[in-house]
Design a protein around this nucleic acid. Structure first.
Lengths: 193, 193
DNA sequence: GCTCTATCGCAAGTCATCTTGCGATAGGCC
DNA sequence: GGCCTATCGCAAGATGACTTGCGATAGAGC
């Protein structure tokens, strides 16, 4: 039953989180060290180790905070336009230092801590995209039978995979091609179903 | 210009690679230590450090060797069946210790070494799936305009994302749902195009 | 069979993450 | 304003990745 004293703690927390974000964009994910963060934040290393279970946890929390409202929810007037915009924004974000850190940690972490965190992130992302789908459905642009979660899994998954293995960033033409494929499907138009 | 002496080297290499694979399946990715591998292989730590640039490189090479022919190329007679089988096999593989190590390293590594390795892996995966697409195209099951690489990016990406963020393994019903979505598309059947 | 070189074993050391025990202090509570 | 407790600073240490210099030896070439 902690009676929330915490003024001191909150100051440290903010300083460390800000310092981590700065180090992240300055040096990149793989060159961030606890010692460096501690020095920049004007805080002792031990204070960091005591507050965050592991380095990954610190990176995760930092990335999540920076992400809140990071990827915008486009509203272009058409489902196709929304998806293209979402894909381009997501691709750019995932290639940024913050986004890269988030993805890397989400994949790496195996602690319960990290598991819940990545579930939260994913849920947020789904919720933000559910608006896009709701509007599309209202406009009659998608088949009602389509599972929104599955569709978004395909959309976001394509982007993630492209970043993980592909290398080169998405340009608008490629993004449109991807969206058109997901909208029209790979199979033949009518028959055989 | 090394005149390939290497009998001694090859023995060590095999022992270390086998020991790494064993440790990987025994303890999981995050509990593999160089010291442990060295002990199991009956080799000094230094020999490992001298041969492999980094721990990730060792894991990568081990995973790649184990993967060769790891994910099968299904031939069920229909495109839909092939895709469902591929997705289920891929999901299982990516959740295995070896597959997990491969994915983790592919995402983590930022060295040129790792970059080429993951490109190779991805190219292999694409090539293996291109047969599926070729057969489907011959049967007239897919629209000719579809870019095979993009389609596979969506298929494989969905699986990867599901593993990274989702948590629970794919069952057959969910896999079929995903394939049907990719085949039929999310958009309305005819009009508005 | 002998030389000769690349590879292995060994020892000592660096660096970063993470732990633990202890004393100091900031700030909430009365 | 004084007590009291949670948090911070500090020091010392454990562990694992990775490096380096040196001596020993296996095995290829003659």
């Amino acid at each position: 039953m902690t009676k929330q004293p915490r003024r001191r703690g909150e100051t440290v927390r903010r300083a460390v989180l800000d310092a981590t974000a700065a180090e992240l964009t300055d040096a990149g994910v793989e060159h961030v060290t606890i010692a460096g963060v501690a020095a920049r934040a004007g805080v002792h290393e031990t204070s960091i180790y005591r507050r965050w279970v592991t380095k990954e946890a610190l990176l995760l929390e930092t990335a999540q905070e920076q992400t809140a409202g990071g990827v915008p929810e486009p509203d272009t007037g058409s489902f196709r336009g929304d998806l293209v915009a979402l894909i381009l924004a997501l691709d750019a974000f995932v290639r940024s230092p913050i986004g890269g850190a988030l993805l890397r940690v989400a994949r790496t972490t195996s602690t319960a801590d990290g598991a819940t965190a990545r579930e939260t992130f994913w849920r947020d992302r789904l919720r933000s995209s559910s608006d896009i789908i709701d509007r599309a459905r209202a406009r009659g642009e998608i088949r009602p039978a389509v599972d929104p979660e599955l569709l978004m899994q395909a959309v976001v998954g394509s982007v993630h995979l492209g970043v993980t293995f592909g290398g080169r960033p998405l340009d608008r033409a490629r993004a449109e091609e991807l969206v058109d494929l997901l909208l029209a499907g790979a199979g033949m138009p009518a028959a055989d179903r």
